[in-house]
Design a protein around this nucleic acid. Structure first.
Lengths: 185, 185
DNA sequence: TGGGTGTTGTACCGTTCGGTACACCCCTTC
DNA sequence: GAAGGGGTGTACCGAACGGTACAACACCCA
């Protein structure tokens, strides 16, 4: 029950936006505090181990969010193309049309890559697996399905980097748009 | 003329390895000092504006390095497939088979994305342009050539992220391997 | 009405941060 | 061998860092 009626989920969501934009090292307690409206003492009340705990909470929340918005639809019944379309719509929103960085990429690069390896790896693995499931359902062999799923995930991550790098969000949009055809080809 | 006979280029190269692994915020002067063998005072002698100058030197060095090892071969005469192969060999070495992060991605994400936007954008743009040139030479229309060139660059960046994220460098290797065929298809 | 619990602001801790001042040292050049 | 200047180590600066201690608050339940 934080100050301004923020639920724990809301707090974690705000932490996410700081970490995804600043990275672990760039996210200071001061900024985290301002973004959540919680003083340092409250932050440490909810996250006793400081930034480390905050990132873990962010990753757990992200995992849950992706699970219901992306992985579950991907594994649900229905036409493969339709299931992929659901994922794409969710990703477009989550990454704000390519303007918002991926917190996973942020954590993989940087000095924290060892510390959060487990949860980060789990999310990526689950993502690839869910996507591969669709492709298997579409008739592809498991091996090629997995390879293509990896290619899709890696393209999304790369599109965020390149779009940010050249300042052209159309790159992200185009990458998303081409995904279904390339996946199901 | 640094302490241990390091040339300026060697110093910048060592700065690059720190920044690519730690990011801007994660790279402390202490680590930069240790990596180069230069004391803080010497570092500030060569780079009067501190980390900012160091990163600019790193980007300039990277630009030059890519120019001669990647962009020039890409634009040189010869069969398109051959030119692309040269690029791929260079990238495989530069990214240490997918184990070393990209400093450009590091700077695009993180809190520095505005500060170094210019040089980062220039490098990405030049890379895409050089690659598109090959594809135009191979007979593709300019528009499709550019789109495919962007796709290739973004795949490389994404492969580095995903390979790091799941701890599987084979993802990077496979991505590089498939590039020529996908590019020239 | 009186705990008790969860939550918070304030003040503070030691450390490290990026950055500076300066004396010194070596090596050249005359 | 004196003068100069590039290069360096040492010591230091104020600020910000991540993190803690603690007293007071608000609120619920008895």
């Amino acid at each position: 029950m934080p100050a301004a009626q923020l639920s724990r989920d809301d707090v974690v969501a705000r932490l996410l936006t700081v970490f995804r934009h600043r990275g672990y090292d760039g996210a200071s307690l001061q900024e985290l505090s301002k973004a959540t409206g919680l003083g340092k003492s409250s932050l440490y009340h909810y996250f006793p181990n400081g930034k480390d705990d905050m990132v873990r909470a962010v990753l757990a929340s992200l995992d849950e969010q992706l699970r219901e918005q992306v992985f579950a639809p991907l594994r649900a019944a229905g036409a493969p193309a339709r299931r992929i379309a659901v994922m794409i719509r969710a990703l477009d929103a989550f990454y704000a049309q390519g303007t918002a960085p991926c917190v996973l990429a942020q954590l993989v690069l940087g000095s924290t890559h060892a510390r959060f390896r487990g949860p980060v790896r789990a999310i990526f693995a689950e993502w690839v697996d869910a996507l591969a499931t669709v492709l298997v359902d579409a008739g592809l062999a498991r091996r090629t399905a997995t390879a293509r799923a990896q290619d899709a995930v890696l393209r999304i991550e790369g599109a965020l980097v390149l779009a940010g790098g050249v300042g052209d969000t159309a790159i992200f949009a185009r990458t998303l748009k081409r995904l279904p055809a390339d996946l199901l080809a």
